[in-house]
Design a protein around this nucleic acid. Structure first.
Length: 417
RNA sequence: GGAAGAAUGUCCGAGUGGCUAAAGGAGGCAGACUGUAAAUCUGUUAGCGUAUGCUUACGAUGGUUCGAAUCCAUCUUCUUCCA
């Protein structure tokens, strides 16, 4: 925590960084977090083996809460993953096996530890709702808790509205009850009074708050953070190959860095404010840079975010690679390398440009590779190649490698073996 | 349970016997311009081939036809209306 935020309450920090989208009982909430230390929970569905960029902002919030002395609880939905949240989905999700879920849970915990500490006085806690959901007795549950839910109100909730014309199964409708029950469990057993989540979770979270207030007549809260949107109003974090993952096996630190390095000017402030811990003074200074100066801000944003997710060493190396590639005449030291096996070549004595593109995964088919070449999108060692029949002489590999460049931003080092 | 309708490429969506590898849009990729930005303009966007071309593809399977995304039958899934 930096000096700026040292004496601020978590409420003030979140307000200042505009990290609160919706909140229940705002005044009461402010008073509580300023007056006492509590626990706060964030639910993560273990439906994939890595968290992605959508979890980023809520995790930032968790981090701020922890730094202000509150205890973060990460709830992995080992039980609810068996149902699948229908919010905003047009189709029912497929169900996962118990082993898949466990494997995903393990991975998620590892990644979450980048944001919250599992040590110290208010160490973060991992909870798994499988512990209480799987043993539920249906009759007991609906008699005790089902009576508190009004179906008319549930159906009016935004997250179910889109499902109204598509058809919503009773099975999925239960998701809201499960999530509310989670909060209740954590409230009763871990003293957790706050739930946070993405804005798409608002209705689910709200129903949890209501359930607790009905049963305990006592303060529980939820707040949502804004979704990370790009300048076109779409969710950020989508890449060519799908989502931007926090797992380096799925998205390399270099790609990750590049994603943030390439954001639009108008996104700089949002990214700095929501995804880094830089003091607001600095955020404001950087995001007010004009013209090409704003590239400085993008570099800092990319570095800070990469450091947070992948650690300082990886961030430095990603930054170095980027500078080498874009600013220092394609220094190849840190470039991703592809080793081509001579034995796999169509003709073992020569490497065609088309094959080179395919082996380096720069095109899905020969036809696409040919188009790339024809349109002038491919260079070898800074030499633009426009002849689809071009053969890369093995002599070019005498220095050990050849640099294949696709478009402006994609570089691959080819080695031959 | 009964009736009507729908299913097209990454997505949306036109197409009702040959001119259809399938209009148009979105998205993707590349080029120009730039600041590794946005906007704009241009090209491109099933696979294989240098190419005439060949192969696969309009929910699935069979059929009619010289010829089917288009017609027929059966099946699957979804939507709407009635009970």
């Amino acid at each position: 925590m930096n000096n700026e935020t040292q004496n601020m309450s978590v409420y003030d920090i979140l307000k200042q960084r505009e990290l609160i989208k919706q909140i229940t009982f705002e005044d009461e909430f402010k008073k509580m977090v300023e007056g006492e230390k509590t626990a706060i929970y964030l639910g993560i569905d273990p439906t994939a083996d890595s968290i992605h960029i959508g979890h980023f902002i809520p995790l930032m919030l968790m981090s701020y809460f922890q730094k202000c002395g509150h205890t973060p609880i990460i709830l992995v939905g080992g039980g609810t993953a068996m149902i699948g949240d229908p919010s905003g989905k047009t189709d029912m999700r497929k169900m996962l096996t118990a082993e898949d879920i466990q494997k995903n849970v393990d991975n998620i915990i590892k990644q979450v530890s980048r944001f919250v500490s599992f040590e110290g006085e208010n160490a973060a806690i991992i909870a798994n709702n499988a512990d209480w959901i799987l043993d539920l007795n249906y009759m007991d549950f609906i008699r005790t808790y089902g009576v508190h839910f009004n179906v008319n109100r549930m159906l009016a909730a935004d997250c179910y509205k889109q499902r109204m014309d598509k058809g919503l199964t009773f099975f999925e409708l239960n998701y809201m009850l499960m999530q509310s029950y989670d909060f209740l469990q954590l409230f009763e057993n871990k003293g957790c009074r706050i739930q946070i989540g993405g804005d798409d979770q608002w209705s689910n979270m709200l129903s949890g708050v209501e359930l607790i207030r009905k049963i305990h007549k006592n303060g529980s809260f939820c707040l949502t953070c804004p979704l990370l949107l790009n300048s076109e109003g779409k969710k950020m974090g989508k890449t060519v190959s799908g989502a931007l993952w926090l797992d380096p096996k799925r998205t390399s630190p270099y790609e990750f860095y590049q994603y943030w390095r390439n954001i639009a000017d108008s996104e700089v402030r949002d990214v700095l404010r929501m995804l880094t811990f830089l003091p607001m003074e600095e955020v404001n200074r950087l995001s007010n840079l004009e013209g090409d100066k704003i590239n400085e801000a993008k570099k800092i944003a990319a570095f800070e975010i990469t450091k947070l997710i992948h650690g300082e060493e990886n961030a430095l190396s990603a930054k170095k690679t980027s500078e080498d590639l874009f600013e220092n005449q394609n220094d190849s030291k840190n470039m991703p390398a592809i080793i081509i096996d001579k034995a796999k070549l169509e003709n073992p004595n020569t490497l065609s440009i088309i094959e080179a593109i395919l082996f380096s995964n720069n095109a899905p088919s020969k036809g696409q590779a040919r188009i790339l070449v024809e349109q002038g999108g491919i260079s070898i060692d800074d030499q633009k190649i426009t002849d689809v029949h071009y053969q890369i002489p093995f002599n070019d590999f005498s220095k050990g490698y050849v640099i294949l460049r696709k478009g402006k931003k994609i570089f691959v080092k080819l080695e031959i073996n």
